[in-house]
Simulated assay, not measured.
Amino acid sequence: MTDSDNTSAQAISGLLHDIFLSKFSEPPTFLLIAGLLTSLACAAPFIAILRQQVKTWSNDSASNRLPKWGSLQLSLPFIGIWAGVSMLLVAIFGLLGLSPWVSFGLALALAYFLGTTVWFQIGQAIGQRIVRSMVSESNRNNRRSREQPRSI
């Protein structure tokens, strides 16, 4: 290695140190940006999969439960969203001046509470949609049976 290669490597190393450690450690800007980007990146597949599953359920009235693979397909992006929100909350609490351990504990508790609430609300909304589709299918079947002529 020549002196110029060594100097450029040290410059790059110094730049990376400044970007990720010195400038982003106090306040935790890097964690804030990473949490936001993680949540947004995981939200897109979650929404797409959820829409696809709801469309499948509404077209197939016989399926009243989410298959195991469908649950896993929804769970993985949801966990990614949860992790991103946790990172974002840790950074926000750090910006407010809380210690890292307190920020981490509050962020995990709050993210767990919000994540569980959202997951159950999504489940209830899907369940209501399934019940409505089953009731409308039953009503259609009842109308068809009434319209058919009865033989004595």
Rank of each mutant, 00 (worst) to 15 (best):
L88A: 10
L76K: 15
H17F: 03
S25T: 11
T56R: 12
G105D: 09
N59L: 10
M1E: 00
G80M: 08
L72Y: 08
S22E: 05
I92F: 02
L66N: 12
G80W: 09
S133A: 06
E26G: 06
S8W: 00
S86R: 15
S4W: 04
V131S: 12
S63C: 08
R150T: 05
L106V: 13
L50C: 04
S145L: 02
Q52I: 06
V102K: 12
G94H: 09
F30P: 03
F113Y: 08
L74T: 14
L16E: 05
S133T: 13
L98C: 04
G97C: 09
R150P: 01
G97I: 08
L50Y: 11
P77H: 09
G14L: 05
Q121D: 00
A34L: 08
G94K: 03
L74K: 09
L74M: 12
K23Y: 07
L89H: 07
L37T: 14
P45Y: 04
K23N: 13
P77G: 11
S71R: 15
S63K: 11
D3P: 00
R132C: 04
M87I: 12
R144N: 13
L95N: 01
T2Q: 01
F20V: 10
A48F: 06
A9R: 00
F46C: 05
Q124V: 06
L50H: 13
S75R: 09
W101E: 11
W101F: 09
S138L: 05
I33D: 01
N64T: 15
I126L: 12
G105Q: 14
L89G: 09
S71G: 12
L50A: 14
L98M: 07
W119C: 01
S13D: 15
F113C: 03
S13M: 12
S99K: 14
A11D: 06
I47T: 15
L114G: 02
L114A: 10
N64Q: 15
G80V: 14
L106D: 05
I122Y: 00
T2L: 04
L114D: 00
F104A: 13
W69D: 10
N64A: 09
E147F: 03
V54F: 05
A107N: 13
A11T: 13
G115K: 01
N142M: 11
D3A: 07
Q128H: 08
L66S: 11
L114Y: 00
L95V: 03
L36R: 02
V85Q: 02
Q52T: 14
A111H: 15
V102E: 06
T116W: 06
K55V: 07
G123I: 04
L108R: 04
T38G: 07
R51N: 14
R143L: 03
A48W: 03
